[in-house]
Write a protein that binds this DNA or RNA. Sequence first.
DNA 1: GATGCGCTTTAAATGC
DNA 2: GCATTTAAAGCGCATC
Lengths: 80, 80, 80, 80
Amino acid sequence: MAGPGHNGHLKSIVDRIEKLNEEKSALGEDITGVYAEAKGQGFDIKVLRKVIAARKMDKAARQEMESLMETYMHNLGMLG
Amino acid sequence: MAGPGHNGHLKSIVDRIEKLNEEKSALGEDITGVYAEAKGQGFDIKVLRKVIAARKMDKAARQEMESLMETYMHNLGMLG
Amino acid sequence: MAGPGHNGHLKSIVDRIEKLNEEKSALGEDITGVYAEAKGQGFDIKVLRKVIAARKMDKAARQEMESLMETYMHNLGMLG
Amino acid sequence: MAGPGHNGHLKSIVDRIEKLNEEKSALGEDITGVYAEAKGQGFDIKVLRKVIAARKMDKAARQEMESLMETYMHNLGMLG
DNA sequence: GATGCGCTTTAAATGC
DNA sequence: GCATTTAAAGCGCATC
């Protein structure tokens, strides 16, 4: 460990992280709630998770491709 | 997939989950930022994480204890 | 640590794991080689990785769905 | 995406990588199996992993040393 | 038994 | 081009 002698920096850092962690946990619970609601409507949570993950990957791949095309077009003098 | 035939429920569910996931990711990045800031101030991130985890456990243990005390007091007719 | 006193069990376990790890590393290098080859042919490795990941997710989601349908059909007496 | 127009190169590359990835995953499962077996015999997985990692580092260090000695001997005209 | 979390390990980006 | 630093994946663990 390092940092200056026992001043308030550490406490401030810890407080901020803990606050953000709480918000993050709350969102996690919200997500769990939506899944539970979906389950109550007859959806299969496991499949639903896979679908969400697949969409995320698709989105990432698409963005990569668009970024690449932009690079190509830039190299070809078709953009800025 | 389960659920009712192809109505809007599924899309609504997926949209909500994806939105919450994005917010959760954003918070994760915020936390990473705070750790980076702390590192820049000379703190050791790994140790910092241990500290946060320990505090979390402490808090949980304390809540356990309080809950237990409440139970005792209730059994003793000192509460509700 | 646990396990029986210093007999040959531990050595056998360690040897097997190390052997498998070597094979795994070798495969990792093979994969790296294929990516390098692809790069030499003008492909973008980053995009390629995303595509592979997306296909993997798609495949997983599809298998989940098929598994679910099988369950439904089984429940409806349409299979075994 | 780059590479030649939509010919079979891309498909071949993707197929090869996916095949290698499957083999790599299979090896990972094998390793997991050995760890599980060791756990069933009373060994502590976490410690076992440390041992393996330590041996790996030892081996690397020894190879470094041998390589260094070879360099010295070469410089001293004791080799090639 | 399933889900979220953290650690460990591995790959990628970047700066020298 | 290599070495360091940072992002990502896999894995085991703990929790509910």
